[in-house]
Design a protein around this nucleic acid. Structure first.
Lengths: 215, 215
DNA sequence: AGTAAATTACCGACCAGTCAGTTAGTGACT
DNA sequence: AGTCACTAACTGACTGGTCGGTAATTTACT
């Protein structure tokens, strides 16, 4: 269906296949940057190179666009995490390290890292989307880490702890790192950010040391 | 200046001394609940028992009200934390425990716990307020914890670690706990919350165990 | 009577959502 | 190869409602 190559220069191109994803990409940028309420649909459309009317050909409402953004951004990342766990051979400690760094590489450290901020900000105003995000992202994500911690406890690699709490203690810093970047750091109010990889490494070390079966 | 006791029943009371704080209290509730943008000044005024015009007698703009909310909510809490550190006699580990639980008791676990969510959500839209919050709350708060960790390292109670990272690793879970309550939990989408005191206790234990000078 | 506090009614900017009209592409029939 | 009819994609001016902010007026208190 591409009109590619031959003609790139007309405004008013017709590319119904590509529009939705282009609009979603534009919306992700702006939602992350300005928040849901402060984002104008005119701006989203302009960034995607179409008019606002076109946006409404593909999405019923601003909220529908919001949900599409969350879905498209986040499902692939979770799925990839699950893949890593399935394939991994090695100690639970190494798997946790891998998960943490992988999470940063393909989620926290990218523009997708703005999603948690968006969800925290908007959860109460959009319970439907929050529900969806909770089931499809948070629960699955937590399960990944919880399973790994449990595996370490079972094998005697870690001392027995409340798994749910431990996962919270590890994911808390990660999430805050992502939130931080997209709020205070991004607003440029003289904040110098700790180098991410170093922070993650130190956090995981501390965590694993805390979990280590003590003599 | 109270008009108390004698006359409680006329609408249209004149109580210029009390209005600002009542308005700030109402605004805190609504900002935390619905976010800054979604909160109507009519609603703030109504909750404070006055009309919108009255609000403008005491605050220049919605943003000024926002800043007043942040200031009034948060400065006393930080000051109290600093007091605790000054007065404390005992091990660094015990001081950290005390700080964490104190933080929850008089900040995270109260309606003030909604402030971090508010700041994360709005920092980019209000750099001035973000700047203020960063200096007056975050930096001072971090300094509290960082000083304590450093004290533990110096005394040989903790092993040497990157103090800034360690503080992030401890505060991350606390902050997420507060954010969580005011986003996903509050939206009531079938989420059961981990019991806070238990979570905090486990997190601190894990953290202190991770810091313990090894062998 | 005088003034400070509070209210009400109003304005204007803003923006999600709509719709009548425009244009790019397709293919049918010369 | 040309052109014409048709449709689906796209546009942008418009609307109706909302809400931050203001000003004229009323009320409480000294």
């Amino acid at each position: 269906m591409q009109t590619t190559a031959t003609r790139t220069e007309s405004r008013r191109e017709r590319r119904p296949e590509d529009r939705p994803q282009e609009l979603v990409a534009a919306a992700l940028d702006l939602f992350v940057e300005k928040g849901f309420a402060a984002t104008r649909l005119d701006d989203v459309a302009a960034r995607a190179g179409v008019s606002k009317g076109t946006l409404y050909l593909y999405f019923d409402s601003k909220e529908a666009l919001f949900k599409a953004v969350i879905e498209s951004a986040v499902i692939p990342a979770v799925a990839q995490g699950e893949q890593v766990v399935r394939d991994f051979q090695g100690s639970s400690a190494d798997l946790l390290r891998q998960l943490v760094h992988g999470w940063w590489r393909l989620f926290g450290g990218t523009k997708l890292g703005g999603i948690p901020k968006l969800m925290v900000s908007e959860a109460r105003n959009f319970p439907g989307v929050a529900q969806f995000y909770h089931e499809q992202v948070i629960q699955r994500g937590v399960r990944l880490f919880a399973g790994t911690v449990q595996r370490g406890i079972d094998s005697g690699e870690f001392r027995p702890v409340d798994v749910e709490c431990a996962v919270g203690a590890l994911l808390g810093p990660l999430m805050m790192k992502a939130l931080w970047r997209h709020s205070f750091v991004a607003c440029g109010c003289g904040i110098s950010e700790i180098e991410p990889e170093h922070f993650l490494e130190t956090t995981v070390d501390l965590f694993l040391n805390g979990l280590r079966a003590s003599r």
